[in-house]
Design a protein around this nucleic acid. Sequence first.
DNA 1: GTCTATAGCTTGATAGAC
DNA 2: GTCTATCAAGCTATAGAC
Lengths: 179, 179
Amino acid sequence: MATLDLSPISDVFRHQGYNGASLSMIAEAVGLKRASLYHRFPGGKQEMAEAVLADVREYFLINVVGPLHSNESPADRLIQAIDGIRIFYRDGRKSCLIDVLSLGEPAALFRPYISELIAAWTDAMTVVSRDSGHTEVRARQLAEESLIRIQGALVVSRSMMASDVFTRVLDSLPDHLLA
Amino acid sequence: MATLDLSPISDVFRHQGYNGASLSMIAEAVGLKRASLYHRFPGGKQEMAEAVLADVREYFLINVVGPLHSNESPADRLIQAIDGIRIFYRDGRKSCLIDVLSLGEPAALFRPYISELIAAWTDAMTVVSRDSGHTEVRARQLAEESLIRIQGALVVSRSMMASDVFTRVLDSLPDHLLA
DNA sequence: GTCTATAGCTTGATAGAC
DNA sequence: GTCTATCAAGCTATAGAC
């Protein structure tokens, strides 16, 4: 087998949280036995979560942060980034790793990864907002506000099983973020 | 002993999530042994979470929903509700039960409680927004938006250990919600 | 590189003394 | 009403056959 597809593991963590995700669940999701996971991830569960976070980081850099830095028009850049976000969260049906991995005692292990991810995301949204005509300070405010709205929409969508909340927030992003 | 103070249990759930909260942690937090918890909560862990949710519901009805329905000015009502919210979330340092209890397989057990809580909260914010001059439809949009911003701010605050994000969102609520 | 088997521990929950 | 003692089941992780 080549390199392992991490998305089933990601799904387990996102649905169950770090504590709730057992190696049995993960093993079943990837189609291996528990012990075999230790061949791929000698560091155990923690290493699996770190691998998933690295995977998510790569996805965001390519599909969200990258487009936001391109040389197209701010509106076109944002539309591409929104597509990347929509796909990652499956229209609001999948939780955010940032959210679920910041719970409990193990959260401290992942805080550095998560902080960097949030910073890169916020910076990229700041750039596109500023390029659309806002001042640097205002652009930063709007970018932070956008991140908050996305994360909040994910929580509310999940709690109420109403993913249209998330879709609506994503659709309104251009109006909020661009001048 | 009279009736048990539920806030230590609430804190454990909010910090660890439902799966991450073990009876050992809860017992230590309340100062009892594991077995003694079953005298207060024969239904075990699930009953503890339900009791905490009922407690939270009562707090919100008294300190958030109630003030929003009073006969004072919309601005004064909202200020009181914001105080209730700020205290409940300890300036953003405590997570939201709505968030942490909607993770994993046990989430289905709590969905009815959580949905009702969110609905009552959103309705109350809709009332105060409408009373300030907005149309019913617009008021509802703004109320939903406010809930999203609060929940998002809690997630971002927790992830980045920056509780000022939460404080800023709460402070901006009157401008967002009232006409 | 995947498996079976198992060690050692913690979990949620129960029984029964006081 | 709280405790000690205990249970079966689940957990993470390891050892070693193939």
